[in-house]
Each structure stands twice: as structure tokens, then as C-alpha cells.
Amino acid sequence: MINDDFKTLRDKLNGSIAHSDDEMELQEQWNELHRRAEEDALNDDENWEVCGE
């Protein structure tokens, strides 16, 4: 991939460029991965508090 490809992908994932119809499943997968990562980050903080005491 070249830089322009990365910029386009970034813009599509953040919503500033519309997806084509065949890319919507990829957006849904990205959203799910992002949600899980956020959830895991919250759990990491909780684990740190428990173990750090």
C-alpha cells in the first residue's frame, strides 16, 4: 500500500469518506474490533487496580 491508500482507508474508517456498498461489512468488523479493544482497556485498568493494591 502507498500513503494515499492508508489515508483513504483511515478516512473511510473515521467516516469522512463514504464506503462503497461492498465495504460496509469491513466497517462493521472494524467497529466490533474497536469496541472490544475499548472494553479490554477498561478491564486492564480494573485488573491493575486489583493487582496494584
Score class of each variant (00 low, 15 high):
residue 47 N to I: 05
residue 46 E to F: 06
residue 19 H to P: 02
residue 47 N to T: 05
residue 37 A to V: 15
residue 20 S to A: 12
residue 42 L to E: 14
residue 33 L to H: 09
residue 38 E to A: 09
residue 50 V to A: 07
residue 35 R to D: 13
residue 28 E to H: 14
residue 11 D to A: 05
residue 1 M to Q: 13
residue 16 S to D: 08
residue 20 S to M: 03
residue 14 N to K: 11
residue 25 E to S: 09
residue 23 E to Y: 03
residue 30 W to A: 09
residue 12 K to P: 00
residue 17 I to F: 02
residue 37 A to N: 13
residue 40 D to T: 10
residue 6 F to E: 07
residue 23 E to N: 00
residue 19 H to Q: 04
residue 48 W to T: 04
residue 15 G to R: 08
residue 10 R to H: 13
residue 6 F to K: 13
residue 32 E to I: 09
residue 18 A to R: 03
residue 42 L to N: 12
residue 50 V to P: 03
residue 46 E to K: 12
residue 37 A to T: 14
residue 46 E to W: 03
residue 31 N to V: 10
residue 21 D to F: 00
residue 2 I to E: 02
residue 30 W to E: 06
residue 2 I to L: 03
residue 6 F to N: 01
residue 22 D to H: 01
residue 17 I to M: 07
residue 23 E to D: 00
residue 5 D to A: 04
residue 51 C to E: 15
residue 44 D to T: 13
residue 47 N to C: 07
residue 50 V to C: 01
residue 4 D to T: 12
residue 14 N to T: 14
residue 26 L to R: 06
residue 21 D to L: 04
residue 29 Q to E: 15
residue 30 W to D: 00
residue 26 L to E: 12
residue 9 L to T: 06
residue 49 E to C: 05
residue 16 S to Q: 09
residue 43 N to W: 01
residue 36 R to E: 15
residue 32 E to M: 10
residue 44 D to C: 04
residue 19 H to E: 07
residue 52 G to P: 01
residue 18 A to T: 00
residue 39 E to V: 11
residue 1 M to S: 11
residue 42 L to V: 09
residue 32 E to H: 10
residue 26 L to H: 12
residue 28 E to R: 07
residue 39 E to C: 06
residue 19 H to F: 04
residue 37 A to S: 11
residue 32 E to D: 15
residue 9 L to D: 01
residue 14 N to I: 13
residue 49 E to D: 09
residue 7 K to F: 05
residue 19 H to L: 12
residue 3 N to A: 07
residue 7 K to P: 00
residue 42 L to I: 04
residue 9 L to E: 02
residue 43 N to L: 15
residue 23 E to Q: 02
residue 40 D to C: 11
residue 24 M to L: 05
residue 25 E to L: 05
residue 25 E to Q: 11
residue 19 H to G: 03
residue 8 T to H: 06
residue 28 E to T: 11
residue 41 A to R: 08
residue 17 I to R: 04
residue 32 E to R: 12
residue 47 N to Q: 10
residue 27 Q to P: 07
residue 53 E to Q: 02
residue 27 Q to D: 11
residue 28 E to P: 01
residue 8 T to I: 03
residue 15 G to Q: 12
residue 27 Q to N: 07
